[in-house]
Every structure is written in C-alpha cells, then in structure tokens.
Design a protein around this nucleic acid. Structure first.
Lengths: 229, 229
DNA sequence: GCGGACAGGATCGTATACGATCCGTGCCCA
DNA sequence: TGGGCACGGATCGTATACGATCCTGTCCGC
C-alpha cells in the first residue's frame, strides 16, 4: 500500500509538514502511534531526523510525546478544543479584516482557485483533501493579511482544529462551510473589511457549534477507540 | 562513570527555558552565537540534547538556525517587531479582560508579589531581572485567564519582545511600566474587565511607542555589532 | 601588491550503537 | 484459580563517530 516516499531523504521540517498534512486530511487520527522507526523507514531517514520532526509537531500540539513510550497523535481534550477556538476567535476576525483591506487581485484569484479545488475534491470524493483545503483557506487569509507571526499561530490552530474535528464533529455529511467561505470571498472582493471580520467571527461560531463538546464520551472513548482499530 | 558533572544533566526543555530566561534578562543578545558544543558543556549534556533545545527556541523565533553555520540568537527585523506587537494587541487585551473576570484572591496576591519582586530587582540594580519579571507579568495574566493555548502564544510573544526591546529600545533609563502594571493590578482588584482590557491595550501601545522602529540603523548595525564583540 | 585558489580547522548533519525503561507474557506460588 | 514476580522483547534516550560543509588564513600567480 504505502509505496515509497523513501529515496530522496527528507528534512525534519518536510516530514513534520507531511505528517501535518496527513492530520489535516484525517489520514492519521488521535491516539495513533508514530513509532520512530516506522516513520523513519517511511521517509527514508534515521530516527534522529524523525525525532526532530516529532518534536516540532509536539510543540505545535499535534503529537504528544510520552517518555520511553513514544509519540502519539494528540487527542485534544474538550477544554483544549474550546481553547483553540477561543484563540481563533481572537485572531482570525481581525486578520480577515486586515486581509480584506490589503487583498490584491491576485490574492482574490488565489482564493477563488482554492475554493474551486475544494469543490473539486469534494466532487471527486476526496473528503480528506477537501477538509484540508478548507482549513488551508483560513491560513491563506492570514497570508494575505501579511502578518507572518499571526499566520504561524493560525496555521497551528487550524491544524489542531483538524484534530478537534476528527474527534468531536457531529455529522460528517454536511460540509456547509462552502457558503461561509464563499461569503468571505465576496466580502474580500468588495473590500468590505468590517463584513469580512463579522463573517469570519460567525463562521468560527458556526464551526464551534457543529462540535459536540459535552464531556460525556471521553473516558469510555479512550478505551474503546484503542480497541476498534 | 561520569566524572564531569557540571549541573547534573538537563532536559532539552530545561535548557531551552534557561536560554529563554537569559534572553529575557538580556544576558544573551541578538546575533550571539550559540555553539552546540559550548552550550552542551555549559549544561553538561551532549550535542543531541542541545540541538533539540535549539530547535525549540528556533520554532519560538528566539534563535535562527543557519545550515552548517550554527544557531544564532535572532535579530528581529523591524517588520517582525511590528508583527509581534500586532499579535500582542490582538491577544492580550482580551486576555486581560478574561483575567479580570476570573481573578481569584490568590491571583491578585501573586500579581502583587510579582510587582514587588520587580521593584526589588530594580532597587538592587538587577535591571535584567526586572525586565524579565516585567515580561513575565503579562504571562501571569494569561495564566489567570486560564487559557493555556493563548498563554503559550503570549509567552512566545513576550520572549520575542525581549529581543525587540534589546535592539530597538530608545532609552534604557526610564522603566515607566511600573505605572501601567500597577494600574492593571488595580483594575483586577476592582474586577473591572473593560478597564483592564483598555489598560492593556494602552500599555502595549506605550511599549510600542517606546521603540525606535525607523529602518535607519539596521543595515549598518548588523555589521558593526558583529565587530565590536 | 593584489586577487583567486587551495588546504586546514572547526562546526554542523546524520546515522548508528549502546544503555535504560517499559510493557507484555509466562511461570510460580498461595 | 488468581495474583505477583521475573524475564524477554521492543522501543525510546543519549552519546558518540564519521562524513559533509563552510570559514579562514595562506600561498602562488599575475
């Protein structure tokens, strides 16, 4: 199945990014073990590099390192999930505001292409990829806002959101975000910064409301989940 | 066994924290080289650990890794400096708002003690330590707000601010922050969240205005600085 | 006298080896 | 029969060794 990504050795950052992408696409899920040897063989590098990559991901909150046990994909607690969206609520509306002000024609085009890709992926049944692109859309907005530092934070928060969604998403069917992203794009086209900010704020609230953050299932989950895989 | 035990070995996180503290206290300054062997000997560990610590710091933006050249303390660009304070402006007022709402009696006491320490350090002529405590005050507020994720971001931003201050601070004499922190503490005592938010916002603007962010000195600086050490 | 090439030294990049720790399993005993 | 203990395998933690890269100082040719 997993054929070679091996030959041309990779850097720690590249591996971290590959794994992050896999998280975005829900190809790797919370509690999954990332054994150093296994990852190393997959990418054709030694454990030294893998270890560095895992440390990067750990600092971003995507994996949890347990001493003498190994690295596991993080399972965000309910509290953590709320924190992530709390942080996004502080950063992203203002960022969308700035982006709407600064957006050049090329930026708009890129966003359009991005949404088109998202639709194409959905049409092709590539749900994971669609999800990933959907998250990337937010990062793209931060990029347009031209605030590298904040973009980094948002990038991390979006990645962690992918984990949150993997655990707490109510129904995987309805991917109603298309509307929200389209509306945002429209606001960008009109350079309506206030509207963009409000739309982003509402979008995040919507996302959060789609999550099931009652603390019911967590304790049994950690046991059951480990079994049924 | 091991005869040479300076400090009895440390973990990567501990080393990273020690170095961060040194940055806060302006004991290590931008462009300073952090040679792996040197750091390793200092902390009594091998290069493997040091490398991990440096990578942590690199991800936080405190050090810059140059391939085959080594690790250097970052010299934030003017743009970066603005970005850092932009991010703080988004996060900290809202965080202060939340903190003022949640602050328990113990929290207030801790903040009081913190300010007292700061004064004591200043009185003792320990400018570096005073500076460090001054930054830590902001982190402490985030801790009270009980938002771990945001606290992490603020922690990083405060650390990077220390580098910015090291480079761009106008006059090292006037440390007029005492007023601002006192005022914040007062707002916390009164549970006046709105006021706390406004004070924090103003405080950050003040800090930023104390910086000399005209892009005059930077190009010659990077050359001259390297020479006079 | 000056510029370019080359060699030596130092430092980093990566893999690998060895020791430490933990988990699982099977045995033994109560 | 059930619980405790010891052993073995697997995996991680760290140091070290070796190769690669870059910097620097020197030497030679122009």
């Amino acid at each position: 199945m997993n054929h070679v990504i091996a030959p041309p050795a990779a850097t720690a950052e590249q591996i971290a990014e590959s794994l992050t992408e896999a998280v975005h696409e829900h190809r790797i899920l919370p509690d999954m073990k990332l054994a150093e040897d296994e990852v190393g063989e997959t990418f054709g590098v030694g454990r030294t590099i893998v270890r560095q990559a895992l440390r990067i991901l750990a600092q971003e909150g995507l994996v949890t390192l347990e001493r003498n046990r190994g690295a596991f994909v993080s399972r965000p607690s309910i509290r953590e999930a709320r924190e992530v969206f709390e942080a996004r609520a502080l950063l992203e509306p203002a960022t969308a505001h700035a982006a709407a002000t600064r957006a050049a024609a090329g930026d708009i085009e890129r966003l359009e292409a991005h949404i088109a890709d998202e639709h194409a992926a959905l049409a092709a049944g590539e749900a994971g990829r669609a999800l990933s692109l959907s998250g990337q859309f937010h990062v793209e907005i931060a990029r347009i806002a031209d605030q590298g530092t904040i973009e980094g934070f948002i990038r991390q928060l979006v990645a962690r959101s992918s984990l949150v969604i993997a655990i707490y998403w109510r129904r995987r069917s309805a991917l109603c975000e298309s509307h929200a992203h389209h509306a945002l794009l429209d606001a960008f086209r009109r350079r309506d910064a206030e509207e963009a900010s409000e739309l982003m704020k509402g979008h995040l609230v919507d996302l959060l409301s789609q999550l099931d953050l009652r603390d019911q299932a967590t304790p049994p989950r950690s046991l059951r989940e480990a079994l049924d895989r």
